[in-house]
Design a protein around this nucleic acid. Structure first.
Lengths: 178, 178
DNA sequence: CGTTATTATGCAAATTATTGCTTAAGCAAA
DNA sequence: TTTGCTTAAGCAATAATTTGCATAATAACG
């Protein structure tokens, strides 16, 4: 019930085709709402049937026609209504913690290695997020409303990565000492 | 491909029925791998077909028969193999960040309220986790390997909640100032 | 005492999401 | 110039998850 809304939000700025949306998602909303491009295509069909978006086919000679979707006023209303509904905290599924549940002497080293691998991965992510921050949001106090929302998404990403790295350090020490 | 493993991990300690597992999940693995009891029943059938668990029906007069499942040696092997595979970071879907993407003057107050609601919720969670910590893991340095794994799960929960609360505070200030 | 919750146990259908495939063009190196 | 990689668009099959159903005992409410 929420992929649809993530799409509507993306169409707020301007119209997009399914492909455009998929690309855009990868760099924006996708960080905290991951979707595949197939999901987007299917969802756009549904949204069009519901009257929340309107699609316009653009003929192309050399490649498949693209369908550009724009938000309708019904869609805009639906979006506003959704904004007033309460949200639940995200349910995250952390495979690594499931594995740690099976921790015992015999697999200790395996798991320490895996923790190190994950640590490196999160450090990389943090660097990526911080460079986006430096480039696009050097001074958050001067942002307009729309941009503030996006800034906060990135900020959450940075805080999360930092916490995860700190936890990895702890975990490596803790498992190693067992 | 990982609910199955979460179940196998739970069966490491001892045999359980589907219902037992569901109960146990709610308090342990479920914090970082949420599942419904229906999912567990279905997965148990699959695991039994694959030969990773063996189910034994226990007749009951007054209520539906229970089927108690135990890990087979094939299951144990499969579990060990899985532990050596690399994990990916969890993909979390944060509806609230999608909403913040639609931030503008008109919905500012709605979103500040929602942020406050969420903040309260995370404070509650943190308190819950910290009380479990105080009760079951007062001194992490003395834990055996198996318990260390579980301790780290809880620790992750606590760090995550603290970070989320800090982010909520930031976000409330930031959106409020827009 | 009758009605409503809660606990206990499990199955099946519907919905959502992921994986894999297809077509077709453009570019780049062997 | 043929082989291979990438972008673009979309469909179909499969897997994962959620919702809804069923049955029955026990506890609690008023």
């Amino acid at each position: 019930m929420a992929l649809s809304h993530a799409i509507l939000v993306s169409l707020l700025d301007r119209s997009h085709s399914g492909y455009d949306l998929a690309k855009r998602f990868d760099q924006t909303v996708g960080f905290f709402w991951p979707v595949s491009h197939q999901q987007i295509y299917q969802e756009l069909h549904k949204l069009a049937r519901a009257g929340w978006v309107r699609g316009e086919t653009i003929e192309q000679a050399d490649r498949p026609n693209r369908i550009v979707y724009e938000l309708t006023s019904e869609g805009r209303q639906a979006l506003d209504a959704w904004l007033t509904e309460p949200t639940s905290p995200p349910s995250f599924k952390e495979e690594l913690l499931v594995k740690l549940f099976a921790l015992e002497g015999a697999n200790r080293d395996t798991l320490v290695m895996e923790l190190g691998r994950r640590r490196a991965l999160h450090i990389e992510r943090l660097a990526r997020y911080e460079s986006i921050m430096a480039e696009h949001y050097p001074d958050p106090t001067v942002l307009n409303a729309r941009k503030r929302g996006r800034y906060l998404g990135l900020r959450m990403g940075i805080l999360t990565e930092r916490t995860t790295i700190a936890w990895c350090d702890e975990a490596i020490a803790c498992v190693g000492a067992a």
